[in-house]
């Protein structure tokens, strides 16, 4: 505890760095994965390709990704951008399939009826499909958020500062308190992010929480 108090300034600084590295990939991942998921949902032939490729992206080892990105992007090896791009790739990998499933889950009756009452394609996407895909997208986003906050730590291996620094430094110094501090910090950030997402969901998707009197009405094939 004395160590924590003595180093509170550094802990705070690295926590902020960690947050600054985590937020952009979560947002960018969402912005990229949603259109990809929609395309996979809408154009069946593209589905296999999009979901397989995005799935494979997740299998690239983190450290290999961070080391190869400077070559691809032309960035310097210590540039935090490498971590942001790498994390965004993982976020897209995780979220693209969820997004496709989220759009699949939108009731066909509702889609048909929104066509019938005169929503054009663009408005239908933003006003009908996207909000209705919201609950599933949100659950995917919560996974991505937790995963990103935890994976950003790897950035420390290539010298981009985050709470991951405490893991490396604690390991080198054989000093468990430091490692433990890093872990607690990462978990706290993940929990706070998750709470924020849940609260946002409540605000943006109030309808998803009303009691369901009719879970699903009997669905018949269209004659």
């Amino acid at each position: 505890m004395t160590w924590v108090l003595a180093n509170i300034e550094q802990i705070w600084r690295l926590t902020l760095d960690h947050i600054a590295l985590s937020v952009p990939p979560i947002i960018l991942g969402f912005l990229i994965a949603v259109p990809l998921g929609w395309i996979a949902h809408r154009y069946r032939p593209s589905r296999g390709a999009i979901l397989t490729v995005s799935g494979l992206l997740y299998t690239i080892p983190g450290i290999a990704l961070f080391l190869s990105l400077p070559v691809i992007l032309g960035t310097r090896i210590l540039d935090p951008l490498n971590v942001v791009v790498g994390m965004t790739i993982y976020a897209v990998a995780l979220l693209a399939r969820t997004a496709a499933d989220a759009f699949d889950a939108v009731s066909n009756d509702v889609r048909q009826s929104s066509v019938a009452v005169g929503y054009g394609p663009v408005r239908r996407f933003f006003v009908v499909e996207l909000p209705l895909a919201g609950p599933v997208l949100l659950s995917g986003l919560r996974v991505v958020s937790a995963s990103t906050v935890s994976l950003v730590s790897i950035g420390s291996l290539i010298g981009v500062s985050s709470l991951g620094y405490f893991f490396l430094n604690g390991l080198n110094r054989r000093f468990p308190t430091e490692i433990f501090t890093g872990i607690v910090g990462v978990i706290l950030i993940a929990v706070v992010f998750d709470l924020l997402l849940v609260v946002m969901g409540r605000l943006v998707l109030p309808w998803a929480h009303v009691s369901r009197r009719r879970e699903s009405s009997s669905r018949r094939a269209i004659a």
Partner: peptide, 21 residues
């Protein structure tokens, strides 16, 4: 088509109401 649909009423089975509205 979009303008046409907006001046024709349409009622379907299972209401087709927007669940988020």
């Amino acid at each position: 088509p979009v303008k046409l649909r907006r001046r024709i009423g349409y009622v379907m089975q299972n209401s087709g109401l927007l669940p988020h509205r």
